Simulated scan of single mutants.
Amino acid sequence: MNTLTWIQKWYAKHCNGDWEHSYGVKIETVDNPGWSVEIDLTDTYLEDVPFDEVEEERNEEDWFYCIVRDGIFHGAGGAMNLEEILDCFKNWAAPLDED
């Protein structure tokens, strides 16, 4: 399953009439240029799962990092690194999925 489809399913799985009103997934552009991703883990099976920080810096335009801080997965990267950020989340979360 491709990463975008997987993220959509992950999000839909957690939408229970309550969770999506307070939490969710944010994907935004930033002006350096690049991407910012935030995925709230509150009330999900990932809420208390340790995450090892990922940092990849190939050059000024080709970079990304991912961390979990305060119950939120944070990812950022260059303009062409959005898929790597989402893959990082998927590669961590998918093997732990309860379904």
Rank of each mutant, 00 (worst) to 15 (best):
M1W: 06
N2Y: 04
N2I: 05
N2T: 13
T3L: 04
T3Q: 08
T3K: 04
T5A: 15
W6S: 04
Q8P: 02
Q8K: 14
Q8T: 14
K9S: 12
W10E: 04
Y11T: 02
A12K: 13
A12Q: 12
A12N: 15
H14V: 02
C15H: 11
C15K: 13
N16G: 15
G17E: 09
G17D: 09
D18F: 15
D18I: 11
H21T: 11
G24P: 12
K26W: 10
I27G: 03
T29A: 11
V30A: 10
V30D: 08
D31Y: 09
P33I: 03
G34S: 05
G34Q: 01
W35Y: 13
E38V: 05
I39D: 00
D40E: 10
T42G: 08
T44W: 02
T44I: 06
Y45T: 05
L46H: 01
D48G: 05
V49A: 14
V49S: 11
P50R: 10
P50Y: 06
P50M: 07
P50E: 07
F51P: 05
D52P: 01
D52M: 12
D52E: 15
D52Y: 09
E53G: 06
V54K: 06
V54L: 07
N59Y: 07
E60T: 13
E61M: 14
E61Q: 12
E61D: 15
E61W: 14
Y65W: 10
Y65G: 03
I67K: 12
V68S: 01
D70Q: 08
I72R: 04
I72P: 06
A76G: 05
A76I: 02
G77R: 03
G78H: 03
G78L: 03
A79I: 15
N81M: 14
N81H: 04
L82Y: 10
E83H: 12
E83T: 04
E84R: 13
E84L: 10
I85V: 15
L86A: 05
L86W: 02
L86R: 01
D87H: 07
C88M: 10
C88S: 11
C88F: 05
F89H: 05
K90G: 01
K90V: 07
K90T: 08
N91V: 08
A93V: 05
A94Y: 12
P95R: 06
P95Q: 08
P95M: 09
P95T: 10
L96Q: 15
D97Y: 11
E98S: 14
E98D: 14
D99K: 09
D99A: 06
D99T: 13
